[in-house]
Design a protein around this nucleic acid. Structure first.
Lengths: 114, 114
DNA sequence: CTTGATAGGTAGAATAACTACATATTACGT
DNA sequence: ACGTAATATGTAGTTATTCTACCTATCAAG
């Protein structure tokens, strides 16, 4: 996430950030910056997670017991806080996915063109 | 929308309400209450538009020039404010749909399970 | 030695949607 | 006749999420 030249501006569908982060954490424990990069890359730079959204979200996930964290070292040798998804977090992720799917089907039903 | 016995708990992907309303208005000019009912019905009661979301949203659409309104009479003979989508509103709807599709593809790319 | 990338964070603003309330009319059951 | 539910429109105040804009610090490359 370049500070001066963000990739592409995108209004993230609100309410999906937690789901995206939790999903990313199922792959492996990762630090915040890497999580954001992963989401941006997989989404082909459509989604961009700003720091002001990312770190509060990670705080939130921990407060709810869906993730834990501890300091570690990044592959480039810098200190970084590594986040791990909890069992409760996996359960929550499942809930969010099915809720998302359900709502998506509903929206598509309304938007369906003849 | 029964005041004492709401149908189902409301779930709405934030940021999609304007799109859903505009889409509904492409069918025909309608009053607010009917718009909400239409969306709820087509979504099989998954989406429910609360009054506190509906009327501010309709205000918003008018302020942006995406809809106009005038008082009329509902099929049941009550006074009701009828909303009509404008040309600018149709253009906006198109934008919102392609943005939604784009973001949806992006989210699904991130959520894709191996 | 300055810029850009990596890494983590906070403060404050903007916005949207929600709950809860308030009003008024009409329909329906008992 | 009376009370409840449905139709119809709205407002007030709260909550939650995301954003912009900052701030710090280290490291690599030019």
């Amino acid at each position: 996430m370049a500070p001066s030249s963000g990739p592409s501006k995108s209004e993230l569908l609100k309410g999906t950030l937690d789901m995206l982060i939790l999903q990313t954490l199922t792959l492996q424990p990762q630090h915040g910056y890497a999580i954001a990069q992963h989401i941006e890359k997989l989404s082909d730079d459509v989604l961009s997670i700003e720091q002001g959204s990312l770190y509060p979200a990670l705080e939130r996930l921990q407060k709810k017991g869906w993730a834990t964290s501890k300091w570690g070292e990044s592959p480039t040798g810098r200190k970084a806080r590594y986040y791990t998804i909890t069992a409760s977090g996996r359960k929550q992720l499942g809930k969010e996915i099915s809720s998302f799917d359900r709502v998506l089907v509903a929206i598509q039903a309304v938007m369906k063109r003849a």
